[in-house]
Structure formats: C-alpha cells, structure tokens
Amino acid sequence: MAEDTATASAEAPEIVVDERREELRAVFVAHLGDAVLDSVIKPGDGLWIRVATDAWAEAGRVAQDKADCKYFDFLSAIDWLPSPYGRYEDSALDVPFPPPMPERSAAVPGYAGGESRLQVLASVAKTGTDLRVLLKVDVPDDDPRLATWIRTYAGAAWHERETHEMFGISFDGNADMRNLYLPSEFEGYPLRKEFPLLARVVKPWPGIIDVEPMPGDDEPSEGEGTEE
C-alpha cells in the first residue's frame, strides 16, 4: 500500500489535488526536511506523514507551532507482524500452541511505508476544520523507544502510557510509565500480535456458523426498506 508522494494524484486521477492538505504537508517538509520520510494524501480525507525516528519530538513541535495543529487527538501504535494465531477461526485442535512466529519479513507496513515492525501513530488536528495529520514513526525492533510528546501535547501522557503497556514501547522523558489498565505485575504486551487472546485459546471460536442474511438478500428484487 505504500504510495509515493508523486504517485498519490496519479493513483486517483479523477479527484482533484487536495490543496489544503498539500499545503499542510509542505509545512512539515519545510520544517523537518529530510526527516519526512514518506507521505500519503487521500484527497478530501486524510494526510499521512512518516517521519524519522529521531525527529519524532521535533515533528510534534512542528505540528503544534508551525502547522497550527494544536489539537491532540490520539497516539497509538501498530504491530505490522501478522498474528501467528491467525484469526482464531480454526478449531484449536488443528493449531499447535504456541504456533511458530511468522517471519520478520511478513510485516508489511501500510500507508506511508516503514521499515520496522512496530510503528507509532499519532493524530493531531486543526480545530475548526477537518484538517488532521496522521503522523507515523518507525520504532526500532531491538530497542522500542521513542521521544515523548508530553512537552508539546500534555494529553499525550496517558496515550503513551497506554502504548507502553500495550506494545512495550518506551517513551523517553515521560517518567510516568505505570500501567494504565493492566495490573502492575502483568507480563507481556497484549496488543502485540504474538500475545495470544487467552479467551479464544481457552474456549475456541466455533467459526463462522451463521451469517446474517442481508436485507433483501432472499428476495429476488433489490431490497428496499419500506415504511409500512
């Protein structure tokens, strides 16, 4: 899915170029320079920017001061490795436990590319508009740590705590890395793909046994809701 900047408009030629988001991206490119590794614009919808790992704190400052995105939306992470457990749709008898981990190369990043398995994702927005920047940053596989954002966006504190306990990504400068949800002795990082969903391991999912028919599916004509 990784698209290059130049090909964004080529991919969707029928839609005009989103000038407001182009301008927004230009602000980041102007202030971060080479640290903007990749970016994607979905016209009329969203702007994804991937920045270099060591420019993460700077990216936050640029977003707040230069790009005028003062509103902190959320911060989280994505584990791009496919789950070794699949979707738990098979009976547990067929699958050995624990299953072998997928190859590292199986981690395929989404929009704006990326080299690492874990990627931190943050969204900041400009109030009063529909402009919003989704900033992505690669987190090194061997040492998942990143600069904190709490000096730019105070609200990032809790989100970084959540990301830490769910993905094991540390944030330098954020002293409060206590668990937010889980007990303090909890081991493992639940949202990483290798973490098993215990409920499904204990009692396997029976699989998709019933599919709700769509309205009008069993009628020959196109289904219309009618107010009687």
């Binding site: 707040q64 003062k70 509103y71 109030t127 009063g128 529909d130 730019t152 105070a154 609200g155």
Partner: peptide
C-alpha cells in the same frame, strides 16, 4: 489546555473552541 489534552465535545466547546465534527468534518 483543552486542545493539548485533546478534550472533545462539550468539554472543548465549553472552553470556547468552536469545533464540531458534525459541522466541520
């Protein structure tokens, strides 16, 4: 402060930030 904490809804608009996704996005 409301913006940097990412407050939303009436908490944000109660602080005078005129932003409603229903209207703006």
């Amino acid at each position: 402060i409301a913006q940097s904490y990412g407050l939303s809804g009436a908490n944000l608009r109660g602080s005078g930030v005129d932003w409603d996704l229903r209207r703006d996005a």
